[in-house]
Design a protein around this nucleic acid. Structure first.
Lengths: 110, 110
DNA sequence: ATCAAATATATAAATATTCATATATTTGAG
DNA sequence: CTCAAATATATGAATATTTATATATTTGAT
């Protein structure tokens, strides 16, 4: 239906298009983390974290390393951190301009 | 349910997560285009283009300029072009590693 | 005022995603 | 071999997105 490459790129962005997955990736920007680490840091249950990690794995956005019974996740490519940082710049520049959004930003960290 | 900022960022990436919307954005990287321009360049019907443009507008990813009866669309922020370019680098680096994908790339342009 | 061109919106069926809950799997310790 | 810890997967109902088709709206020309 569409060119496979565009389909593929779309899948990549779709994988980033989820709040919990974004938070997970932000955690991974600072280095590899186990599922338990993420679960604790984000305050969500194990199953939800694993579910979203599975999606990031499928899309080749994260990589895993297994040590005993714990699995460590990391960004597959440091450029993904850059991408997230660039996205942050875009938000800061232009995209957030409704009053409601500004208000949210005033009380929330980036 | 989630922090509004993360929700907002997710919406941004979700908006990029669609093949036709990506192709539209790639067109806009080279400068502003009317709906008719896009329609012709992409070979899709008017309604589909407008529908997808509406989504990009809603998410503040594109901006419009009206001249008579034609509407010109452009990227809202040049950083969006950078983001797409960075995404391309990521694909070229790592993300495309299945045999099927390499095969597709060999016969398709980026 | 009417018409045609350009663009936008409405609708709804098909499809995909989300999210909570339950259950499996894998691994090392004892 | 059994158990518990850590992680993954299955399931399905609720919700959201996609996509095709039809219809509106807006604008400038005549």
């Amino acid at each position: 239906m569409y060119q496979p490459l565009h389909q593929f790129k779309a899948e990549f962005f779709k994988a980033l298009g989820h709040p919990l997955r974004l938070v997970i990736l932000e955690q991974l920007v600072t280095g590899e983390k186990s599922v338990t680490d993420l679960q604790a840091a984000l305050g969500v249950d194990q199953s939800s974290v694993s579910q979203q990690l599975a999606i990031l794995r499928t899309r080749n956005i994260v990589d895993t390393r297994k040590d005993g019974t714990t699995v460590f996740y990391r960004l597959r490519d440091p450029l993904i951190a850059e991408l997230l940082e660039l996205a942050r710049s875009i938000f800061n520049n232009h995209l957030i301009d409704t009053q409601a959004m500004l208000q949210q930003l005033a009380t929330t960290d980036t």
